[in-house]
């Protein structure tokens, strides 16, 4: 189990390095998806399937879609068809796809091979997470809401400057 988690960690790290070294933003986004999937696999292998699911749904799903949208809206100019052809050469998507397949194979292997040991450490279910979030840590949920509020206002504040400054 430990080696598998380390392997996913290595894939995550590789993906992260590829993200910051790519020249084209869309290619970086592809590797970012791999990074997030690798992180989700690590969570799943460490017994936190709920966190893994959230990672996939929220980060690899929703936020990445937002990223792709923004990048597509910013890069106007070239004709769409040319750009799409250039972005989606096999050479480009082969790397991320390969890494994702590796992660998938690892997940399947760990699900099929690992014996369900009944020990003191049970996997954390959504119920456990919810109970602790709305039990002892309810004040922290409130504080996080203020953190998000601060981020929102700051982003709005800076963004308004930018548009007015032009």
């Amino acid at each position: 189990m430990n080696t598998l988690a380390l392997f996913s960690g290595a894939v995550t790290l590789l993906g992260a390095i590829m993200v910051i070294t790519r020249q084209v933003a869309v290619h970086a986004v592809l590797y970012l998806v791999v990074t997030l999937l690798g992180l989700a696999t690590v969570f799943a292998l460490l017994g936190a399937p709920f966190a893994a699911a959230l990672e996939v749904i929220i980060y690899a799903g929703a936020i990445m879609v937002l990223f792709v949208f923004v990048i597509m809206m910013l890069n106007l100019g070239q004709s769409d068809r040319e750009r799409e052809k250039e972005w989606l050469r096999p050479r480009i998507w082969l790397g991320p796809a390969l890494l994702s397949i590796l992660l998938c194979a690892e997940l399947i292997y760990s699900v099929s091979s690992s014996p369900q040991q009944e020990g003191p450490l049970a996997p954390l279910s959504a119920r456990d997470v919810g109970l602790s979030l709305f039990g002892p840590y309810v004040l922290m949920v409130e504080l996080v809401s203020f953190l998000l509020l601060a981020g929102l206002i700051t982003a709005f504040h800076i963004g308004r400057h930018r548009t007015e400054g032009r």
């Binding site: 004040l139 922290m140 504080l143 203020f146 601060a150 504040h157 400057h161 007015e164």
Partner: peptide, 28 residues
């Protein structure tokens, strides 16, 4: 709460630092 406080303070400070209109480039 310590880490959340650090982050709330840092994010608010970021907006405050960039709040000067007359020197927008430096502030950004």
């Amino acid at each position: 709460p310590f880490f959340l406080g650090v982050e709330i303070l840092a994010l608010s400070l970021m907006g405050l630092v960039a709040s000067r209109y007359s020197r927008l480039t430096e502030a950004s």
